[in-house]
């Protein structure tokens, strides 16, 4: 009994420590974003501001093209999320359920492409898009992220767990394969689809490397890129940066809170099912 209690205590201590490590920087950012300029870099750190201010948040909207960046980010992220869900489901269905020549070879090639670190692909991707004159355009920002192999793989794995009987019953009922996909497989795959949507949203919303390479002018920046440019050679506008960052992270947090159930379910059923 006693030992159990001590074990439990120990366990909670570890959890608490981890929480501090993960949450600490975030809380610190929140605090900075509300702190008056003069208190930002004082020691000891004032986690609870002496003087609350919304000035930095106002400044983000007033002094930066934050609205434009927001539009860019929303546009890119929503297109990429929708297209990822749609295409990875379609491709996943084909790989899981249809028979066509070269299926295994194509799928192996897709998987093999995962072995190549993304960084290496930046330059060739840039060159190709440059040839198409897509640098510094929405096309250049959006096209490379329309579909991802990981998502295809996820959907394929999920679709493979759906009993074959279901597909056959639908065939006998008179469905075409597209209808089976659309009316049977998609509706029963909500958890997996939600997982794909959430992952893609997160990845796309926070993506930094690609937008920073492909966007040249200020008006094509996404939110993370715009924020990064607040760090210039001479100074870092910490409070402004933090206020912007907090604003950027709000949608992700909101989505996680709303879809928490789906998120966990999706991870469980998409990755580990049987």
């Amino acid at each position: 009994m006693r030992r159990l209690k001590i074990q439990k205590l120990f366990f909670y201590l570890i959890l608490f420590g981890m929480t501090i490590i993960y949450l600490g920087p975030f809380l610190f950012s929140v605090s900075i974003s509300f702190n008056a300029d003069k208190d930002v870099l004082t020691w000891p750190i004032k986690l609870i501001p002496e003087e609350w201010t919304l000035a930095h948040y106002q400044s983000v909207w007033r002094d930066l093209p934050f609205g434009q960046w927001l539009v860019n980010s929303v546009l890119i992220t929503s297109i990429q999320t929708v297209s990822n869900v749609f295409f990875s489901a379609l491709a996943g269905f084909a790989f899981a359920r249809l028979r066509f020549p070269g299926k295994n070879i194509i799928f192996s090639m897709l998987l093999a492409s995962l072995m190549i670190p993304g960084i290496i692909l930046l330059v060739p991707k840039f060159i190709v898009l440059n040839e198409f004159r897509l640098i510094n355009t929405y096309g250049g920002l959006i096209l490379p992220g329309l579909v991802s192999v990981v998502n295809i793989f996820l959907m394929k794995q999920f679709f493979e767990t759906i009993p074959k009987d279901l597909e056959e019953a639908a065939l006998i009922d008179g469905c075409s394969y597209f209808r089976i996909f659309w009316q049977i497989f998609l509706p029963v795959s909500k958890p997996a689809l939600a997982a794909v949507a959430i992952y893609t949203f997160q990845g796309s919303w926070n993506e930094f490397m690609w937008p920073v390479i492909v966007s040249v002018t200020n008006d094509m920046f996404t939110l993370p890129v715009g924020m990064a440019f607040l760090k210039n050679e001479f100074s870092v506008q910490w409070p402004l940066l933090m206020a912007g960052t907090i604003l950027i992270s709000l949608p992700t947090i909101a989505i996680f809170l709303i879809f928490q159930r789906y998120f966990v379910q999706g991870v469980a059923s998409a990755g580990l099912k049987e």
Partner: peptide, 20 residues
């Protein structure tokens, strides 16, 4: 002929009902 054109109906061991 594809299953739907054979005018047959089938009952499966695992029921195979559309869950949604």
């Amino acid at each position: 002929l594809s299953p739907k054109d054979r005018d047959i109906a089938m009952v499966f061991q695992n029921y195979a009902l559309y869950p949604h």
